[in-house]
Simulated assay, not measured.
Amino acid sequence: MDMEFRGAFFPLAQGNWSLPNRAVEPQLQEEERMVYVAFSEFFFDSALESYFQAGALQLSLVGDKVPKDLDMLLRASYLGSIVLLQSPAVIDSPLKLELRVVAPPYCTIKPSGTTISVTASVTIALVPPNQPEVQLSSMIMDARLSAKMALQGKALRVHLDLRKFRIYSNQSALESLALIPLQAPLKTMLQFGVMPLLNERIRRGVQIPLPEGMDFVREVVTNHAGFLTIAADLHFAKGLREVIEKNRPANTMDSGVPSAPPPSTAAA
């Protein structure tokens, strides 16, 4: 059975929204496995665009949520600004680290691996109780994440690692120079403090709609230029006829009751 799907995500608030598909068309040459599924860069780009449009690509850590080592590093780096506040209540207040993606991320798939490019704003502030927060710094972060794809059960899961990292000020070139010593330790702190939080959020992955009683076995994920493929055999925990009968749609034509329209979804 050879079927082609658009493979697009869209924000639920904009059901007719569409992202132009500029990805290459996957070409499958192998025939050794029972099932081949191809995902182009468009599949991942449309998902990233949808999450960006929905405002989901942001992370705010306050107080105890900020890793302790990162809290100490940031307080030491901005010690001069903190001392100038001259208010003990503000100086000892919890630290806030906010990351907000400012443009839709995009995915690049090559035979050597998959990367996701992200540009985000990073805001560091103190949050005194019952007072307005005091901003210490605002900067721009350009990051390239390596994405390792794996098929686990019936879900395509992604594990992200911070590969390249650069920060610079969006206010002045002088402040950008002052941020250079922060780059290496901040990258390390983000890798071990923030990336695990991001991976936990996306741990569920993308569910592949296989019927109950049918599973992938001997699955292999392979990168190509512009797309990746999943090759697998199928294992039937039940008899094939039983699986077909159980998942056969109910015949509503004889009952005279019109079928309900399908619910709104986030993927097409």
Results as ranks from 00 to 15, higher is better:
5 F>Y: 02
7 G>S: 02
7 G>I: 02
7 G>Y: 00
9 F>Y: 04
22 R>M: 13
27 Q>E: 07
29 Q>A: 15
29 Q>I: 15
33 R>A: 15
36 Y>Q: 06
40 S>T: 14
45 D>S: 05
47 A>P: 00
47 A>C: 15
51 Y>I: 12
62 V>G: 05
63 G>P: 07
64 D>N: 07
65 K>C: 03
75 R>A: 08
82 I>Y: 08
84 L>I: 10
84 L>E: 14
85 L>V: 05
89 A>P: 00
90 V>E: 13
91 I>P: 00
95 L>I: 12
95 L>Q: 13
103 A>Q: 15
108 T>A: 08
116 I>D: 06
124 I>G: 01
128 P>Q: 04
128 P>E: 06
138 S>W: 10
142 D>I: 08
144 R>C: 14
145 L>R: 00
147 A>H: 03
152 Q>T: 03
153 G>W: 06
157 R>M: 04
162 L>P: 03
164 K>R: 09
166 R>S: 14
167 I>T: 11
173 A>E: 15
174 L>P: 06
175 E>M: 14
178 A>D: 10
180 I>M: 11
184 A>T: 05
199 N>Q: 02
202 I>E: 04
202 I>T: 08
206 V>F: 10
206 V>D: 00
208 I>H: 01
210 L>V: 04
219 E>M: 02
219 E>G: 08
221 V>K: 08
222 T>L: 14
226 G>A: 03
228 L>W: 01
229 T>P: 07
231 A>H: 08
233 D>T: 13
234 L>D: 01
237 A>F: 13
237 A>S: 13
239 G>S: 15
241 R>W: 14
241 R>Q: 14
243 V>Q: 07
246 K>Q: 11
249 P>L: 06
251 N>Y: 07
251 N>R: 12
253 M>H: 09
254 D>C: 08
258 P>R: 04
258 P>V: 07
259 S>Q: 12
264 S>N: 07
265 T>N: 05
266 A>P: 01
267 A>C: 10
